[in-house]
């Protein structure tokens, strides 16, 4: 008998850290000193606030570097950092630091943000809350995931993997370890979550599950 899966949801409060950057050197300094929850916030804010958009805007660092400092090449490099590759926020932080340091070491020009357009570091406080949806099998799962809020899908796919350092997303974890559905688990974990809207990600997961249910029923 497998353990049931309980859907959780996640709500967010934004804390202002009182740290700001007006050029790349100050951005780098901030990147090195702010808490991990700030790196997490700035690499996931657009995803949550603009989860309906495709293509969605990039992470906050890339957006600021491109649109405010007008450093388009660096902005593109920062936007293309593949967050899926990283299993820990500390590793993600190192990657951003490394890309910016390389740029600073080779760049001749220091660009300053105009007053009021500085980069303001913030961090995310997460509240994780159980929902009433508890499921025991794939059929129940497919129904429940259609009902839960987009915040719940976000929590299990993004936050659990990177912020809670669970290695895999929660759905793949449960499919593999509790239902023995390794192929389904792999199909979902190999998606590039960051290039989908949350709704399209939800639809994709439902599609894979229903495909598997149909195959079982044949």
């Amino acid at each position: 008998m497998s353990n049931p899966f309980r859907f959780y949801t996640r709500l967010n409060l934004t804390e202002l850290l009182g740290v700001k950057a007006k050029n790349l050197a100050e951005l780098l300094e901030g990147l090195k000193s702010v808490p991990g929850s700030s790196i997490y916030y700035h690499t996931h804010r657009f995803l949550q606030q603009h989860h309906f958009l495709s293509p969605e805007p990039p992470n906050d660092f890339a957006y600021w570097v491109s649109n405010i400092l007008q450093e388009n090449k660096l902005g593109e490099q920062l936007a293309s950092i593949d967050i899926m590759q990283f299993k820990k926020i500390s590793e993600l932080r190192e990657e951003f630091i490394s890309v910016i340091e390389k740029h600073i070491n080779t760049s001749q020009i220091i660009r300053e943000a105009p007053g009021g357009a500085e980069f303001y570091f913030m961090k995310s406080v997460s509240f994780i809350i159980p929902t009433r949806q508890i499921v025991n099998n794939l059929t129940e799962f497919a129904e429940a995931i259609k009902k839960v809020s987009i915040n719940s899908v976000y929590f299990h796919m993004f936050e659990a993997r990177l912020r809670l350092e669970r290695e895999y997303n929660d759905f793949s974890n449960w499919f593999e370890n509790e239902l023995g559905e390794s192929d389904l688990a792999k199909k979902i974990s190999s998606l590039d979550f960051y290039t989908h809207t949350l709704d399209s990600l939800r639809q994709k997961i439902v599609f894979f599950i229903e495909q598997r249910i149909n195959a079982q029923n044949k």
Binding site: L11, N12, L13, P35, S37, K123, S124, V125, S126, F127, I128, I129, R163, L164
Partner: peptide, 16 residues
């Protein structure tokens, strides 16, 4: 509401 709740906590991830 989250701010009011958070006044009684101190960590960045809170399980309610």
């Amino acid at each position: 509401i989250l701010l009011f709740v958070y006044l009684y906590y101190n960590q960045d991830i809170i399980h309610l």
